[in-house]
């Protein structure tokens, strides 16, 4: 295939990856921004979302669309409740001490991972997409008669992949509206800016923390439910998204939601393009190198504010 059609495929695959990565990274960034907690267990909440999606699909049966819609609701909800409980029972009790929360979330990571291994097993299991129409994409070539349209073999995508991108965009827009236009969002932003003053204006910051930790984990789980019809659910699938989410959050600026979104789109697209034209490993190497450069030359990230 020529360069042009290959680039289109790379952009589509990159967009799907960017969409899911945005959901995961925004969850991680939200938790750090409001709570100042580096959640090492975030990838496991992603994995748990995928496994629960499989469990719901297997339990419900019937038309894939029905079980998928139920999974979209149930998996993020359960993962969010689990994360909020982990916040109340563990993180709050260690007063969100930065070092201790890292150790605690590593503990949560292993508990979730090993419990999943015990109950779900080591196999990768597929979830059927609710719809999956494949369609071809036309391309243009220059001939003696001028430009003409043709259908290159292999240049196409599925309706489900486009749905994943659209769904992620819709969720991010809704989240943005919730944070910027609602009373709950105001409480969240006030807590992020000054925890003591937030309390002095009646904002229950412990409850805000539990909700934010739950919402952050639910976003990761939602990303997993969306991707699991493409990737399959596996108990070790949380590692790579966690690494990519950290890369995105560091490049975008810790706690900056606009920065996180821009960086997720950039990393997702570049990952897709480099993986298609070169190798997936090279994409990860370049992303990690970019993080190193950001940490050296702009430690606060592209959109973060320097600490004076």
């Amino acid at each position: 295939m020529e360069f042009g059609p290959n680039l289109i495929i790379a952009l589509i695959e990159g967009s799907v990856q960017a969409a899911v990565l945005t959901l995961i990274a925004v969850g991680l960034s939200l938790v750090f921004g409001v709570m100042r907690v580096v959640n090492v267990a975030h990838g496991e909440f992603f994995m748990l979302g995928a496994v629960l999606a499989w469990a719901v699909a297997s339990f419900v049966g019937g038309h894939p669309a029905v079980s998928f819609i139920l999974a979209l609701i149930i998996a993020p909800l359960l993962v969010g409740i689990l994360a909020a409980a982990a916040d109340i029972l563990i993180l709050k009790r260690i007063n969100y001490d930065p070092e201790n929360t890292i150790v605690a979330t590593i503990g949560i990571l292993y508990i979730i991972q090993q419990m999943t291994l015990i109950t779900y097993g080591p196999d990768a299991r597929p979830v059927e997409p609710p719809f999956n129409h494949r369609f071809s994409i036309p391309w243009f070539e220059y001939t003696e008669q001028g430009y003409s349209m043709y259908w290159p073999w292999g240049l196409g995508t599925t309706s489900y992949k486009l749905f994943v991108v659209a769904a992620a965009v819709a969720v991010i827009v809704l989240l943005w509206l919730a944070i910027s236009r609602t009373k709950a969002g105001l409480m969240m932003r006030a807590t992020q800016l000054d925890r003591d003053m937030a309390q002095s204006f009646g904002i229950p910051v412990d409850r805000v923390n539990a909700i934010v930790f739950g919402v952050g984990a639910a976003l990761a789980a939602l990303g997993a439910v969306l991707i699991v019809p493409i990737q399959q659910a596996h108990y070790l699938m949380g590692g790579e998204p966690l690494l990519l989410a950290f890369i995105v959050v560091i490049i975008g600026g810790l706690g900056s939601l606009p920065g996180t979104i821009v960086a997720a789109v950039f990393i997702g697209l570049s990952d897709g393009i480099i993986s298609i034209f070169f190798a997936p490993t090279l994409a990860k190497i370049l992303s990690t190198l970019l993080v190193a450069f950001v940490l050296i030359f702009r430690p606060q990230g592209l959109f973060g504010k320097a600490v004076r």
């Binding site: 105001l186 932003r189 006030a190 800016l193 000054d194 003591d196 003053m197 937030a198 309390q199 002095s200 204006f201 009646g202 904002i203 229950p204 910051v205």
Partner: peptide, 27 residues
């Protein structure tokens, strides 16, 4: 709890103002 005190009717203007600096005046 600290968040229950203002609900009793105590308003606080701290030293250095400590506004929510990135929020708007209205917010």
């Amino acid at each position: 709890r600290a968040d229950q005190i203002p609900k009793c009717g105590i308003g606080y203007i701290p030293q250095g103002r400590r506004l929510f600096s990135e929020l708007t005046v209205e917010e």
